[in-house]
Structures are given as structure tokens and as C-alpha cells.
Amino acid sequence: MDATNISFQDPILNAISGIIILDNDGNRIIAKYYDKNSSLKEQKAFEKNLFSKTHRANGEILMLDGYTCVYRSSVDLFFYVIGGADENGLLLMSLLNCLVESISSILRKNVEKRTLLENLDVVILAIDEICDGGIMLEADPAAVVQRVAIKPEDIPLGEQTVSQILQSAREQLKWSILR
């Protein structure tokens, strides 16, 4: 390697190559790739490789296939943010933080596969708010949650957790008896 070989990161907004959420068997729950030129087969192979390298180690960051990957796990979920080989890991990390924290707040701290799938629609919305076509759109989890805003009164029944539904059912039952 000589001096000319040291390359500077091109100043471009598109810093994110992908956002991936896998379950504890390494299966894809959500995977968004923003540099579009990879086939499904390559993606799956990458995910498999990524999972095998990260599901036991607790290292936060690794280099894989020319990508910088930051990751975090929660119960039975693995969250990944992928960037280019020279991308600043701290930048990717701030995005990962935002992803995990906003999902955690959407799922009301129950960050596990089941609740995630129950609230998949809101999670999809959140990811769309965090990153758009490889550009980091928002890094503040509070802002993300506010934008996908689920105010308690207008949560459709399908997105409430079981306990909430029981709660509201109890109330409604009470009213119907009282009536």
C-alpha cells in the first residue's frame, strides 16, 4: 500500500448499505438493502454469514465481506446496520441506536420476535422513517416514534399488546354490564 492508495470517503449522503433484523435462528424478519445490486441469494448468504459471526459474540462491530456492520441483539432478535468498508462505525452506531431505541419504544420495551411481528406495520413505518434509500433520515429515536405516532386512543386493535386489549375489553365489558 502506498500513499495514493489511501482513499478518502466520498462526501455523499448515502452512507447506509442496509438495515437487517434477524430472529434467533438467523432467519430474516426485515432486511432492507440500499445498494441495490445484490440478488436474493447473495443477500441470504450474507445474512447467514453475518448471523453465524455475530449470534454468539457480543462485539458490537465487525468487518464482513467489505462492509462495516454494527449490531445489537435483544432477547431473540438481532439488529444490524451495514455500511461501506470505510464508513465511520460511529455514524452507523448512531443509526443502530436510533433503530433499536425507537423499536423498543414502539414495542413498549418488549423487544422480542413475537411483539415485533405483532407490530410489524409500525416497525416497517419506523424503518422507513429512519433511513430512506440509504440516506440516514432521522437519528433521534424520539422523533421517529413521534412521527410514526401511535397515540393510545387511535391504536387499531391489531397493534395493541394482549394486556392492553384485555384492559380495554375489561372496561368495555364493565360498561356493557352497567348499562
Binding site: G158, I165, A169, Q172, L173
Partner: peptide, 12 residues
């Protein structure tokens, strides 16, 4: 209401 809620629960 009661009936519908129960069904939702199963759905979930």
C-alpha cells in the same frame, strides 16, 4: 363486544 374481543385475542 365480548365475543369480538375474544376472537381478536385468538388472532393475536
Amino acid at each position: 363486544y365480548h365475543k369480538r374481543d375474544k376472537k381478536d385475542d385468538e388472532d393475536l
